[in-house]
Amino acid sequence: MVDEKEQIRIGIAEGAILTGSGTLMTAGLGSCVGLVIYDETRLLAGMVHIMLPESPHVQPPHPQKYADTGIAWLYETLLQQGASHAHLRAKYAGGSQMFQALQMEGLRIGERNVRAVSMHLERLQIPVIGTDVGGHVGRTVWFELPSRRYFIRTARGDERHL
């Protein structure tokens, strides 16, 4: 079964690691952020579907839900799987504001998610290779190994990659 490509679907507030050829995908990102960190020199990548900027606890049962604990989980898991810090790179998309008419500050979570992701990656000194964030559109995203391409498809049928 070595030749078979693995396809991993990630749900809202979940995360997964891919160790070989295959795809990591998450459907219908709105204000959430789909973050991929991968090792430039190996077939190793992980994705988290981040919902909120900050965890209310130090050790939440589902760390992938939050930018702070989700990025820490992804980083540590990749290192355990044999990634080296110097070869880690990041790509991410999402963080929309889906309902344009909403004026409530508390609901502008998309922007806050993107800011939190960018800040934590900078703190860990992981270079960001590409992003596709903001706007008012939903995104389905997937990341492929071995190409290390991050694909984005919107409801309007636009498709692009990072």
Binding site: G30, M98, H136, R139
Partner: peptide
Amino acid sequence: PAVAIDMAASLLDI
């Protein structure tokens, strides 16, 4: 009310 037309998951996540 606020209206949007898009993928169901992207609208419900908020």
